[in-house]
Design a protein around this nucleic acid. Structure first.
Length: 292
DNA sequence: GGGCCCGCAGGG
DNA sequence: CCCTGCGGGCCC
């Protein structure tokens, strides 16, 4: 059993170059010589390599949409089969749940403005913030992960410093076991008031001295690559637990019958004032709901 | 530059 | 023990 180290490695800093995978291994950054995901299903993933092995990869610098492993033809680098939520993909899921950082190394084979021309460059620490399923460019199901760079702001949250006030105007960063972004727009306030801050799944209302708390949950997620809209038909009023369960794909909502799939109970909602977008529900069922 | 195959390390 | 994986070198 290999001993995986999480976080920064002594004597290696962001931007350091390595000639090949063997050098990366010797530095202690990434142990596997071929596989792009280091780690296992019990401790999670400690490191990944982004090197053009999968055509659907997207590198935006501080945000990466990474393709999981499997179903890939070693010679053509194209998908020839569906991927599954096993092996390294499961390790990345474990990392998403634990919130432990994942080292990122970029290789010369991936073409982006952040990739090196030759060899491998250590790119710092990232957190797995999201996972979903997609049909890749080659027509097969791929497991995908959103990784977000851990910056000084997020590190400051880790040691309990208060968040920067101006960020509260559009979004509120909340440190939980897994870092999430809870947007508190006028719309999400509206959906909460519509249900009097009661969770549409379990009915619980969180209230302290009459001050109520609930979360506005987007059905089709905002941000890349989903690009869901911030509109009432794309929002639910949920308690924190059911918000996490919904976002992580534990349950979904039937696009036309509005029944709950994956957990018991039924969704309460105001058919007149709150028209749920069926396309977005379909999107959630196909891409986010993986508990099948 | 593309195809091919040998490789190792580690997980299951 | 077998299998797989975002290498890599060598051939053409």
């Amino acid at each position: 059993m290999a001993n995986y180290t999480f976080g920064e490695i002594d004597n290696v800093k962001e931007g350091d170059s390595f000639s090949d995978r063997k050098a990366l291994r010797e530095a202690g950054i990434h142990l596997a010589l071929v596989a792009g995901i280091d780690g296992n299903q019990s401790v999670g993933a400690s490191s990944i390599v982004l090197n053009g092995g999968y055509v659907d990869d997207l590198d935006l610098g501080s945000e990466i949409i990474y393709t999981g492993q499997g179903g890939n033809d070693a010679n053509t680098k194209r998908q020839v089969a569906d991927q599954k939520w096993t092996l390294g993909n499961k390790a990345l899921l474990v990392s998403e749940m634990s919130g432990l950082p994942v080292r990122l190394t970029r290789g010369f084979n991936h073409k982006s403005e952040f990739s090196p021309k030759s060899g491998y460059v250590y790119g710092g620490l990232y957190r797995v913030t999201d996972h979903f399923e997609e049909k890749g460019k080659d027509g097969y199901t791929i497991c995908r992960f959103r990784l977000e760079k851990i910056n000084s702001f997020e590190n400051s949250l880790q040691i309990g410093k208060p968040a920067v006030p101006e960020l509260f105007t559009t979004s509120e960063r909340v440190a939980t076991t897994v870092l999430r972004i809870i947007r508190d727009t006028k719309l999400s306030k509206r959906v909460k008031e519509l249900y009097d801050y009661k969770c549409q799944v379990c009915g619980i209302q969180i209230s302290v001295k009459g001050i109520k708390y609930a979360e506005g949950a987007h059905i089709k997620p905002l941000g890349n690559p989903h690009k869901g809209e911030d509109k009432l038909g794309n929002l639910l009023c949920l308690c924190p637990n059911h918000h996490v369960m919904f976002d992580k794909g534990v349950f979904t909502i039937h696009p036309s019958e509005y029944s709950l799939i994956g957990i018991g109970g039924e969704l309460t909602f105001d058919h007149k004032k709150h028209v749920l977008d069926q396309e977005n529900l379909k999107y959630h069922q196909e891409h986010i709901f993986i508990n099948h």
